[in-house]
Amino acid sequence: MMTDELIFLEQDILTQDEVFDFLAQVSVVHGKAHDKGAVKEAFIAREHEGTTGMLEGFAIPHAKSSAIDQPAVIVVKLKNAIEWQSLDGSPTQNIFALLIPENDAGEKHLSLLSKIAKLLMNEDFKHQFKQAQNKAMIAELLRKNL
């Protein structure tokens, strides 16, 4: 579910809508989904249920859809923080997006979501993630902690 090719650094994205568009595009380009529009709509629908913006510049958007063929985690570090209506009101710069096939048993994705949320409560992890300068460093940090 977690591969280096799905880690994107210094992305010049200005809005939450653009983030969802980028995530949907990446999911199709990398063979994780087959319908960009449906994936984007799944991210938007989930966000309407309640914000996925966490604390201190992190967000965990997730999409569950029949347009998603393979589960995946997409990591995005934005060049500049953007508004996300996060729980603490801070702008978001670090994104862990989950792609969940509609027929997935739910338990796997909830477990991964829970693990990521717990990591984002760990000050050492957040500091290391923010300091990571390349894909290899981020991938290693995630593999070690997830």
Rank of each mutant, 00 (worst) to 15 (best):
F22I: 03
A24P: 00
Q25F: 07
Q25S: 15
V26G: 00
V26C: 00
S27E: 06
V28I: 15
V29H: 12
V29R: 12
D35Y: 12
A42I: 09
I44T: 11
A45Q: 12
R46D: 03
H48E: 14
H48W: 08
T51K: 10
T51L: 11
T52L: 02
L55D: 01
E56Y: 06
E56S: 00
E56H: 09
G57R: 01
F58E: 05
P61M: 04
P61V: 07
P61C: 01
H62G: 05
A63R: 05
K64Q: 14
A67W: 03
D69H: 08
Q70R: 12
Q70Y: 06
Q70K: 15
A72I: 07
V75L: 14
L78K: 05
L78N: 05
A81N: 14
E83V: 01
Q85E: 14
Q85P: 07
D88L: 01
F96L: 14
A97L: 05
L99G: 05
I100E: 10
D104Y: 14
A105Y: 08
A105N: 13
H109L: 12
L112C: 03
L113G: 07
K115W: 09
L119S: 11
L119N: 05
L120N: 14
N122Y: 00
D124V: 15
K126L: 01
F129K: 13
K130E: 15
